Amino acid sequence: MLEHGGRLRAAAQQYAIAEADWLDLSTGIAPWSWPIAPVDARDWARLPETDDGLEAAACAYYNAAQVLPVPGSQAAIQALPRLRGPVGKVGVLSPCYAEHAHAWRKSGFLVREVLEREVEHFIDVFNVLVVVNPNNPTGRLIAPEQLLKWHARLVERGGWLVVDEAFMDTAPAHSLAAETWRSGLIVLRSFGKFFGLAGARLGFVLAEAGLLQALASEIGPWAVSGPTRKVGLACLSDLPGQQLQRERCEYAALRLSALLSAHGLEPDGGCALFQWLVTAHAEPLHEFAARRGVLLRLFKAERAEHSSLRFGLPHSEADWQRLETLLHDYRKDLK
């Protein structure tokens, strides 16, 4: 399996630091989790049903004509290649979330990872183009107009444009959700990142009805548990809570960028849920932090100067102070 952030237990074992003593900044998950009402015992005892209002709430939240709830957008990433045949050529705009290229390769597709400037050159040979927008880990946003131009080129030949919008909740104006009535346009949305509830394992696929029906058949019945559906419905319907979450994420991202810059680590990218830094010091800083119980997300490259770190958002003032002290001590240690 591929490497991901959030492997706190493994870090605790490796560095002999109790899990409770860590500051985990290795994920792009909002550190403020939605308050959850107690789950009725009947929700655990019954199979989930699809007439509870979750789909309607998701359509309203995402501004989409139809949606399919899935057990995390990762489930859709793995299932989509099985719906696409015959095996063909897939472009993945990189660097990005590594599971996309992995899933298509695993299903036998020829995958080419391309830079944004290379898409125009290769797009007419691709059967599928995958774009993460905003990108993870760079935070790069591609304008909807550009994505729709690529989609038009692909769909002429029966192709797909798959857009992973896992980090789009704080920038809805850039979403293609409202355009998913178009044939060959598939948008993936993550629930857990923005709402701070990654453990719920909930995501949504936005696409034309026929494709959603095929994907539902591929994933199978009762994919999302009853308690998770109830939590999702409550969060997607909570408009004041969503506004508060957007505001504090955006403020924290600006604060994090300023803090890193003040210590000579100006970010190279990011979004409202994380900041991204390319530096030759990525590996030593990751190790320095881990030995002090602060977990960052390291992206190794063949050349050290191309390696990078992703910093998630601290939760509390104590967490901010701990991160500031760490950065101060690291800079002092370099001298």
Rank of each mutant, 00 (worst) to 15 (best):
P69M: 02
G28N: 13
G203I: 01
I36G: 01
Q66P: 00
I29F: 05
N63M: 03
F126Q: 12
P240N: 13
C59P: 01
V294Q: 10
D169N: 00
W222L: 09
P284T: 03
R42Y: 01
F311D: 05
G192F: 11
L188R: 05
L296K: 10
G203A: 03
F109C: 06
L285S: 04
L8R: 13
V119F: 11
D52H: 03
L83E: 13
Y251T: 15
Q14E: 08
G293D: 12
E49W: 15
R291F: 06
A258E: 13
G72V: 00
L323R: 07
W181D: 13
I142A: 01
E283Q: 11
L185V: 07
T50F: 08
A18T: 07
L197T: 05
K89N: 09
F122W: 14
K106D: 14
V92R: 04
P227F: 06
S217E: 15
D333N: 10
S257I: 00
V111E: 09
E3I: 05
E317N: 12
R303I: 02
P314R: 03
E116Q: 12
P137T: 02
N135D: 01
R84C: 14
A58Q: 00
L215P: 10
V155I: 14
K230V: 11
E116F: 13
A65G: 06
L334Y: 02
P267K: 13
R46F: 02
L326W: 08
E208A: 12
G28V: 09
V92L: 03
R248W: 12
P172K: 04
S26N: 05
L273C: 01
E113L: 10
R157Y: 11
A198Q: 07
T180L: 13
E49M: 08
D40G: 06
L273E: 00
E113C: 12
G158E: 14
S257W: 03
G53M: 04
H151M: 12
G293C: 14
P172Q: 02
R291G: 13
C235G: 00
E99R: 05
G91Y: 07
G159Q: 08
V231F: 07
G226I: 00
K300E: 08
I142T: 09
A177G: 08
R84P: 01
L236T: 00
P81S: 09
